[in-house]
Simulated assay, not measured.
Amino acid sequence: MLFIKRFFQYSLALLGLTTLALAIWIVIFLIRPLPMASETIGMQIPAGASVRAIADQLVASGVLTEPYSFLLVVKLTGSANKLQAGDYAFNTPLQVMGLIDVLKHGTFDQFKLQLTEGKTFADFRQKLAQMPGIRHDTLMLSDQELMQQVSGQNDAPEGWFFPDTYFLDAQSSDLDLYKRAYQKMVQHLNQAWEQRASGLPYRTMYEALIMASIVEKETGVEEERPQIAGVFVNRLRKGMRLQTDPTVIYGMGTRYRGNISKKDLLADTPYNTYTRSGLPPTPIALPGLASIQAALHPANTNALYFVANGQGRHVFTATLEAHNQAVRAYQLKK
């Protein structure tokens, strides 16, 4: 009898420890973000899929690392018969109860793409091509063919897509996003062009877009952008060359390795504003709204030069002598 009594005592103690360990494991699983394989994961759950099949698919897609914890929580919460088929997109950070809630209600997060100011169209194409969960209908199109589908024109695509945060439903076409970003840029540019300052040295709205892209690449400080634009507008009015490094870098293409030399500044390309007068033939980046506004409302300044001060800003000067002094003070010393 004593043996049986102790056996039951040890069994109860072991059961209690096991239950406690299981409870701790469940709590950790509930509160810890899921270790998803990537920031956004798209998947499609077919009609009639079992809970185990859904769990296995979540593992295969990289949402879960193993199915058993998920299956246990689904069973404990009574959600086994409530998970629905459909197209889903899961974004980090995501906890298991949020995952179950999405699957129960048949709703899904949209795919998100952040198109950043100052990036090039090539960057945009690469980023969108790597986006999961959508249809990539434009991968085999050239830039000109893509623009023909987007705008009906064979324009160069650089600069024509507005930097913003875009959301796409699962299995939507990448062409839809190109069209939305293009139309948004056209809308902002048209509105800004209609409200532009008088006397600007731009013959067309496209030239203003080119200037906005240069301003975008010259400074990340928003309040400096009208001053930068003012310098370049003054140079255009005087027939001076713009002499801006970002255009040279753009013209170098894949030859650019992080630095430009005097040899690069002297090597003529259509984008080298040290060797050629006026604006380059196309934008050199995707400008944001602040740079568009700066290009069309430049500061009223007599400055013709500027130089980086080494602290993220620029020193503006009106004469070559003052500019050379600023270069000696901030650039040669560095």
Rank of each mutant, 00 (worst) to 15 (best):
L2V: 09
I4T: 03
I4G: 03
K5C: 05
K5Y: 08
L17H: 00
T18L: 15
L20R: 06
I28W: 14
L30I: 13
L30A: 13
R32A: 09
P33G: 08
M36H: 04
G42N: 11
G42M: 12
M43L: 15
Q44C: 07
I45S: 07
A47M: 14
A49R: 13
A55G: 03
L58A: 08
A60M: 01
S61G: 09
V63G: 09
L64E: 00
P67K: 11
Y68L: 09
K75E: 14
A80N: 05
G86C: 01
Y88Q: 01
Y88F: 11
A89N: 12
A89M: 15
N91Y: 00
V96R: 08
D101F: 08
V102K: 15
L103Y: 04
L103P: 04
H105D: 14
Q110I: 00
K112C: 06
T116I: 15
T116M: 11
K119F: 02
F121A: 01
F121P: 02
A129C: 01
Q130C: 00
M131K: 07
G133F: 08
I134K: 05
R135M: 12
H136F: 05
L139N: 05
E145S: 06
L146S: 08
A156G: 00
P157M: 12
T165D: 11
F167K: 06
D174Y: 10
L177S: 03
K179V: 07
K184N: 14
M185Q: 15
Q187G: 03
W193G: 08
E194N: 10
E194I: 02
G199Q: 15
Y202I: 01
R203Q: 14
A208H: 13
L209P: 10
S213N: 10
V215M: 09
E218T: 00
T219F: 03
E222S: 09
R225Y: 08
I228R: 03
A229G: 06
R237E: 12
R237M: 11
K238L: 15
L242P: 12
D245T: 07
D245V: 06
T247M: 06
K262R: 15
L265M: 13
T269A: 05
P270V: 08
R276A: 02
G278T: 04
T282V: 00
P283H: 12
P283Y: 12
I284P: 09
A285S: 15
P287S: 07
L289C: 00
L289V: 04
L289G: 00
Q293L: 08
Q293E: 11
A295T: 06
L296A: 02
N300P: 03
N300I: 04
V307A: 03
Q311T: 09
H314C: 04
V315G: 02
A322R: 09
H323M: 11
N324W: 06
R328A: 14
K333S: 15
